[in-house]
Design a protein around this nucleic acid. Structure first.
Lengths: 395, 395
DNA sequence: TTGCTTATGAAAGATGCTTGACAAAAGTGG
DNA sequence: CCACTTTTGTCAAGCATCTTTCATAAGCAA
């Protein structure tokens, strides 16, 4: 007796469904699409016409003839619309306009106190977005979606932050409604780590369906992709591995109020404190990275040990989820070689062979762009969903 | 650039799609179904006729009139077909015939060495199934599906065991093909822990979408449900938490060849060994349970400590996945009060508040029937899938 | 240039869903 | 007890959609 019947997905044979087959960017002939979808050629032609109308696809040069009339080809047109991607950090904010492939067309960033409240941040987002759009010569009507990452837990379905520890004034604030005051498009809001996981996945790990993205910066968090989609858990709190108890952390105090958390010994904040001396004060994770890059042995050893500590926790994650890929990102991953070495050392030694045999542990490939790419991806997925295409055709 | 476009699901408005709305067992009127699906009444009537033809639904007594002609009602008919559910353990095998609601109609079990190879086991399954079917007066053509749980990792898509440690001769054996020699129905094979998780979920936790089922018997394993579906991971090895390293386990040797695994100190096998004395030899997990039930303090304390150890690992799982429910099952859960108490003690103390606020930790409700129910559920889901219904109508 | 091959686009036919209409069935009030 | 009301279930017609078929267009080879 299933509680709720699993509702069936959108119909495959709509213009939107056809578009999904073209999103990989490869040009296709109508005949190829017919075979791919199982629809007849005239039907495909009609769908193509609709998509051409929306400018979401465009004709490209014909394919080489195989003896007869050459097939005309059509390809996804990522320039038809743009999305706004924003990444709000604790002290820094970044915003970009990308096309529907996630390519950055324009970007800006600014020092920014998230603690000043949502109105300030939203105003900055809207102002910056309109400015960049104007610079590109695009009107606000070209915006197909808005993706926003924030440094705290979010109820994804409504786009409202929930009890965010470092975002005073944001609790249950209706971000999408505020954005829609001057941008008429779907607005998606998510935790910054989830956003980064998505960005990393979409830009750098094609084909991967089970991935753990670990962000190591001031704090430590993870974004979890399983079965090809981001998992947020029952309350949207999935991936919060920073406050797992670690034997080696013993009684180290953690900003969360508890003791012995992973973050208390392995985060950028913890490393900065541990490596600070009377004459050399380290304030931020980037200071630790800089020190390590300068060749400081103590810093390198500390980072490698942090990698081991994180690896300790990841060992359990690997056994539980059996991912194919673990990606280490965040500020501290700028010293990736040491951090990843520590993680690998522990995970490969401790996990069962079946899980590690095909396990890749690698530093972030998207690097500084993971968050902004993920925010863009979130918006793009919403903008190109079959439901959204159907609405656009109806209007 | 997504690697593969997410394929859209089956069409909602087929006979199979309609059936999904009736699977909860509640009788519905045609008008209710029309509103539920968005289809018109004549269309619903036509679909109902198809389902009546297949005997998958049947008319029930009319609803009370609201002033006019009373609506006739139809309900899902779980007796239309049956499924075969089998649970193969290391030393024991169980097989049941259930209806399409998962209700047990007949069952049998037998001592059984999985190590004797697949042919012996498959023969037993087929023989037992036909015997029970005959006893119920059903022909083999009434079988809509077969679900089988085995004590080892399985490549779910093909139904082949992969490198199973305790199943010599089963590696990559094509179980579905062997079963289909005398039963013409879809055959689903999965790991016993996954099967149990599914059984627990479907029989006892309606509405739950994020659940961890922990089996504590000779070994320790977990089945993971996230977003409403079972997650098997990249190689089908998800949930293998028995061989996670545990600080308290130190250098305790584990049958896996490693040292310091959770299983080495908290499994039924480990407890049996630890509690054995010269004059009192404990062989199996059930011996430990019996001892605890007799009031033996050492056994109770040992079980509770095992719960704490398991809780230690689950703390990480909770932070990572943010489930709403953790269920403790397996032989050792027959001493559930002590085991669960230990788990709760650690998990509630160690995890972050947001994750534990609405977290339920409970002993298995399905108890001994979890595996067989899960195997049945697997088969039922396949048998009642819209794709399968469509095929049945086409033939 | 002509014939062959292959792809496109338009028209015709088939299928399936929906709308509207009507008959059937049961309660309600006289 | 009978007529009326109300709701249901089914039938026929209309409409949209998809597919099949056919004519046309475009390149390649002789």
């Amino acid at each position: 007796m299933p509680p709720l019947p699993p509702l069936n997905g959108p119909v495959a044979s709509t213009a939107g469904g056809l578009l999904q087959h073209l999103r990989d960017g490869r040009p296709r002939t109508r005949a190829e699409l017919a075979q791919l979808t199982g629809l007849s050629r005239p039907t495909v032609s009609q769908r193509i016409d609709q998509l051409l109308e929306l400018r979401l696809v465009s004709p490209v040069e014909d394919a080489a003839s195989t003896g007869g009339r050459p097939s005309s080809q059509i390809a996804f047109n990522p320039r038809a619309q743009v999305v706004v991607a924003a990444d709000l950090g604790a002290l820094h904010a970044r915003l970009a306009i990308t096309d529907l492939d996630g390519n950055l067309l324009a970007e800006t960033s600014s020092a920014h106190e998230i603690g000043e409240g949502p109105e300030v941040s939203i105003d900055w987002i809207l102002h910056s977005a309109h400015e960049l759009l104007a610079g590109l010569g695009y009107g606000p009507d070209r915006v197909a979606g808005v993706g926003i990452g924030v440094p705290g837990p979010v109820e994804f379905s409504t786009g409202r932050p929930i009890n965010p520890p470092i975002m005073p004034g944001w609790d249950r604030f209706d971000v999408p409604a505020a954005i829609r005051q001057s941008l008429d498009a779907p607005v998606l809001v998510d935790n910054d780590v989830n956003i980064m996981a998505l960005g990393e996945l979409s830009t750098s790990w094609p084909g991967v369906t089970d991935l753990i993205f670990v962000k190591v910066a001031s704090g430590i968090g993870a974004g979890i992709v399983s079965g090809g989609t981001l998992r947020r858990g029952a309350q949207g709190a999935a991936g919060d591995i920073g406050h797992v108890a670690l034997a080696r952390a013993a009684d180290a105090p953690c900003p969360c109020g508890n003791r012995g958390c992973l973050e208390a010994v392995a985060s950028g904040r913890a490393l900065a404190r541990a490596l600070s001396t009377a004459e050399r004060r380290l304030e931020r994770p980037s200071d630790v990275v800089a020190l390590a890059k300068s060749g400081d042995v103590a810093a390198i050893q500390a980072i490698r040990q942090a990698g081991r500590d994180i690896g300790e926790v990841l060992t359990v994650c690997v056994s539980l989820m059996n991912p194919s890929t673990i990606v280490i990102g965040g500020t501290m991953a700028q010293a990736a070689e040491h951090l990843v070495a520590g993680v690998r050392e522990v995970v490969y030694a401790r996990s069962i062979p079946l899980s590690t045999e095909h396990l890749t542990i690698a530093p972030s490939r998207a690097a500084g762009n993971a968050a902004i790419s993920g925010a863009a991806q979130l918006a793009i997925d919403a903008a190109l969903s079959p439901e959204r295409i159907a609405r656009a055709l109806g209007a």
